[in-house]
Design a protein around this nucleic acid. Structure first.
Length: 761
DNA sequence: GAGCACTGC
């Protein structure tokens, strides 16, 4: 057993003091009630003791009498499956440093286990905290609120949460903290031993977010250094064994598993006999079949993206209206509701509307049909779903380290994902799931698990974080799943070019500051150097705008108007400056509530940019990165583009021929300017923020730059002696020669020779 | 002449 060595366990020295209540005020417990935690020995607590304490009239953490509400909630808690296993939990928790736990939907693990841990750790007596991480912000907030209610305390005091932009905790008081996994990773960068925490619980570990994966690696290491730290990994059943093995203390001795049954209803699964050639068509056909032939109950259909979903909704609406008209006595009315993340929250709320009422009293009942992306697989739960239609596809991020490109591809889902989707039909009563693929394909073709994000992402950010955390050998770091070495090499190479790491791979002073910004390294770099170009105000704004979703709206029925509004705000020098302009105009017009709407801009995204900008500004202040602007606008706009080069010099493309083709520098990918690009010409050299692979390879968010800037501000990367042969090298060579000639004639390196030239369309 | 799977700091 891996129980904590006594000499290293600070808890063993402490025994909870027995306190008699003194004369009481109105809020206090009756005289003579013993301290509820009397006799609790940290980490030697058992279920019987805790149940007694829970029944006590006195709240052990606030020393106030429990409210009536508390008693009511406690009765509901007692019915949760996990509550019945309290004794087993305390036994396993006391005896082990690391536990893997599985609890299906409805087991109550997310709300109860952290509380169980708190009663055992008694973190409040030690100035410590119990942390429970969540992959999503809303979950961290809502679970914290629920648990605060259950413990009869005010949210933000004994129980709190911590997410980006909002720290709802009280230092010294909060001892149970729900937080996003990314937030805990941030904390680890400045406190690698995570000394504030007595126990860390990673919830939803099966989702394998980047942050959770890195945390698992860190915690496994930390467990060896900190015998007093306990770790609980909570996951879905399918992944448990993998985590048990990963967290084995000795070889061949897996971490113990704590299992809690869920509380869901059975879901009957149906497969097609033959593969479906057109999954959207098949999906619509299946939805119509359900509506005609199945008992009342709402339907959830999974598709892959916005366009597909809007399209399917239109078709379903048309077809079901037809059915109703043909046979109003047996077919009920339908509402079809699209659901994807870029919908405004108000429209997302529509999924909670009730199904439509029958058209006539006693007529056939109505049905709600939700057509959704993967957002309904994990992030949003819709009660009342009885039928799930699963075509078996989703858009997934893939990363190609060779050309450093992340793109979205429609790909088959995993078995785990299919199981999760089916489960959505059984939350309120028994349901049915229609899989639009054969059982054979399910068994033989689908992967067991979705590839974790760490295998599908550009890792430059992660690598910088790991180096900052003091991880020296990134290739040999103990990953749950190790990324491709080439992905790590690409990240190290980029960080070296950015001067965040030196040639030996050591973190530079610059790199240490870069790591503190919640940004990709390229953006952090350009932000930090921007004061040298007297444009940090502007780069800060651009960075914030690049960190939020697209601000441009383009409704189908008003494309022209939207394009015209965009043209009014466009800066011809480049899309980055257009973003700056949009933000500034937005700030100047904040008194006008209609401004964003009338300019076809997303108020939500702009508000987010404002928020991000404030956060980044605070980090800049912390590291004394000055906020300055050049007084001359022409010079300012030029300097902004120069600062862009300092971060994004690896994202340059050179024009080839007259057909509007560009070649990316060094990688030699043929790309085109994205149609949303606002440049009024096709400049010879451009810098781009994003490479997107859709109908063809595009570069998006593009600005004009000059070859001279590349040579001046990214000398290492543009060192021509090590540059691959090709047209771009020849073009750069010409610039170098021209400059040398000019310098000789002028007797100096006068940059005015690089006067901006623009070709006409 | 196109799109934004989903999160997170």
């Amino acid at each position: 057993m891996s129980s904590t060595a006594p000499e290293n366990n600070p808890y063993l020295a402490h025994k909870y003091p027995a306190q008699q209540r003194g004369p009481s005020g109105s809020n206090s417990a009756p005289l003579g009630v013993k301290e509820p935690l009397y006799g609790f020995l940290p980490r030697k607590v058992n279920g019987e003791q805790v149940r007694k304490a829970l029944e006590n009239d006195l709240n052990p953490f606030t020393k106030q009498a429990h409210s009536a509400q508390y008693k009511k909630i406690l009765e509901a808690r007692k019915k949760l499956p996990v509550y019945a296993q309290m004794d087993d939990f305390y036994k396993m928790f006391s005896d082990n440093q690391i536990i893997v736990m599985v609890g299906e939907t409805g087991s109550g693990k997310t709300t109860q286990i952290p509380q169980f841990v708190a009663y055992s750790d008694l973190p409040h007596t030690k100035g410590k905290l119990v942390a429970c991480t969540q992959p999503r912000r809303v979950a961290a907030m809502s679970v914290a609120k629920r648990v605060a209610d259950e413990m009869d305390v005010q949210l933000g005091r004994q129980v709190g949460y911590s997410i980006r932009f909002e720290d709802m905790t009280e230092p010294g008081t909060t001892f149970l903290k729900y937080m996003t996994d990314g937030m805990l990773l941030r904390e680890a960068m400045n406190d690698p031993n995570l000394d504030r925490y007595s126990t860390i619980i990673l919830d939803e570990a099966h989702e394998r977010t980047l942050a959770t994966d890195i945390l698992m690696g860190l915690l496994k290491n930390l467990a060896k250094k900190r015998a007093d730290l306990k770790i609980i990994i909570m996951s879905a059943t399918l992944d448990a064994l993998k985590f048990q093995k990963y967290f084995s203390v000795r070889s061949n001795e897996a971490a113990p598993l704590f299992k809690v049954p869920g509380r869901t209803f059975p879901v009957e699964v149906f497969y097609t006999q033959e593969p479906e050639p057109d999954y959207v068509e098949a999906a619509i056909r299946t939805v119509l079949m359900i509506h005609r032939a199945e008992d009342p109950g709402d339907v959830l259909l999974f598709l892959t993206g916005e366009e597909e979903i809007e399209d399917a909704c239109r078709k379903i609406k048309l077809e079901t209206d037809d059915l109703v008209n043909q046979d109003p006595d047996s077919v009920g009315p339908v509402t079809c509701i699209p659901l994807y993340s870029s919908l405004p929250p108000q429209q997302q709320q529509r999924i909670f509307d009730p199904a439509p009422s029958p058209r006539t009293t006693g007529g056939p009942p109505g049905r709600k049909i939700v057509v959704s992306t993967n957002i309904a697989e994990t992030s949003l739960t819709i009660d009342g779903i009885v039928y799930v239609v699963d075509p078996g596809f989703s858009k997934q991020k893939v990363y190609n380290p060779r050309i450093r490109v992340e793109s979205l591809l429609v790909s088959p889902i995993s078995k785990a994902s299919a199981q999760q989707r089916a489960g959505r039909a059984g939350r309120t009563r028994p349901g049915k799931c229609f899989r639009l693929y054969t059982e054979k394909d399910f068994m033989n073709e689908l992967e067991e698990q979705t590839h974790p994000e760490i295998l599908r992402s550009n890792l430059s950010n992660v690598v910088l974080e790991l180096v900052k955390l003091g991880i020296r050998d990134l290739v040999r770091f103990d990953y749950v799943d190790a990324p491709a070495p080439e992905t790590l090499m690409r990240a190290l190479e980029l960080l070296n070019y950015l001067a965040a790491l030196d040639d030996e791979g050591n973190l530079t002073a610059l790199g240490a500051i870069m790591a503190e910004f919640p940004l990709d390294p390229q953006m952090a770099k350009m932000l930090i150097v921007s004061p040298e170009f007297k444009c940090s105000n502007e780069i800060l704004t651009i960075t914030a705008m690049l960190s939020v979703p697209n601000v441009w709206l383009r409704p189908n029925n008003a494309r022209r108007e939207a394009d015209a509004a965009k043209a009014m705000l466009t800066v011809p020098d480049g899309d980055h400056l257009t973003m700056l302009n949009v933000y500034n105009e937005y700030m100047n017009n904040q008194y006008d509530k209609n401004w964003t709407w009338s300019h076809y801009l997303s108020a939500r995204a702009l508000a987010q940019a404002e928020n991000v900008r404030k956060q980044l500004e605070r980090t800049m202040e912390r590291f004394e990165v000055e906020l300055v602007s050049h007084s001359d606008q022409t010079k300012l706009y030029q300097n902004v583009r120069q600062a862009l080069v300092c971060g994004f010099f690896m994202q340059i493309a050179h024009k080839e021929g007259e057909k509007g083709n560009y070649l990316t520098v060094k990688d030699n990918q043929v790309v085109a300017l994205h149609p949303s690009c606002g440049l009024d010409t096709q400049p010879e050299w451009v810098i781009f923020n994003e490479f997107v692979l859709t109908t063809r390879p595009y570069i998006r968010t593009v600005s004009e730059v000059r070859a001279e800037w590349l040579l001046d501000f990214a000398q290492t990367y543009f060192d021509l002696s090590s540059f691959p042969d090709g047209e771009t090298k020849r073009a750069l060579d010409r610039v170098v020669k021209k400059r040398a000639g000019k310098a000789n004639r002028d007797g100096g390196d006068d940059n005015r020779a690089t006067k901006k030239h623009k070709k006409n369309k």
